[in-house]
Amino acid sequence: MNIVALIVSPLIALITGLFFLGLSRKISARIHWRYGPPVYQPFIDVMRAFSQKSITHGNFFDFGIILSLTGTIVLVLFLPIGGLWALNTGGLIMFLYLMLLGPFGIALSGAAAANPNSSIGISRNFLLALAYEVPLLLILLAVMTDYNTISLVEIVEKQAATGMAISSWRLVIPGIAYFLILPAILGLRPFEITGAVQEIASGPIAEFGGKHMAFYTLQHALQTFVGIALFVDIFLGGGTLFGLLNSLAGTVWVDILEIFIFLLKMVLVLFIGLFVNAVYPRFRIEQAMQYLWKWPTLIAFVGLVIVAIIN
């Protein structure tokens, strides 16, 4: 399983992530009363970017973007996609830390480009990350404390036995909090602060062109995938469907079906997120921080207190 997962799961993540980017463009187009681009448009964009001759600001500029993409791919290996996972070491803490590599790599690369627009974008990105990490850490700690494990796989497996985590009353509060911060994790509209084109000319990626841009798009696709997949894994029971697949247990079909169910759940989450994001302008960074440190943090804190008291 592990060897298969090692190859398959990054591919699934990459393709689904790019597809999600296209889907989100299509859906927002429909909300704008437009026809919208084809769903596979991001694939064309990536291809085009690869065929362009980009510029580089030195080796560190390249290193940053490579680190970013590599880190995000490795991050995907830790995510159970249905019953598919490649690595399970270090648990959620490792996961949290690896989540950092993507933005960190972009930050290094953007800073090496010596463009203040990039630097401002990075500073906003880190502040936004700090803002949503506070509730996110509380949420993940609540989950880890509730299941008394730090392993993501164990969490998913325990959910498979009991149904979705979000259906248990203790974890429904952290679940709500996670859903509130999901747009911030994905960088969707009210929180589309990092690369605000009208303000700081697309921020960290202001100097990215050609293959750098292609790598960034891939990384962004993976990041989108991870943000939603983590929610599905922790709160929506991963690839399980209330034990409906038990009859098929033991066959290969279960694995494939689980992956499909997992992706379906992700599409559902994405849809809801997009409808929210279509009707909001973007926040100013301090407003975003104030918001994230108010309601989501409060809810997540209450959730953690409840879980901690019960344990």
Binding site: P37, A49, A201, S202, E207, G209
Partner: peptide
Amino acid sequence: RFGIIPVATPRQ
């Protein structure tokens, strides 16, 4: 529809 979208910087 034709994949034409504005981008912020000439690099992209």
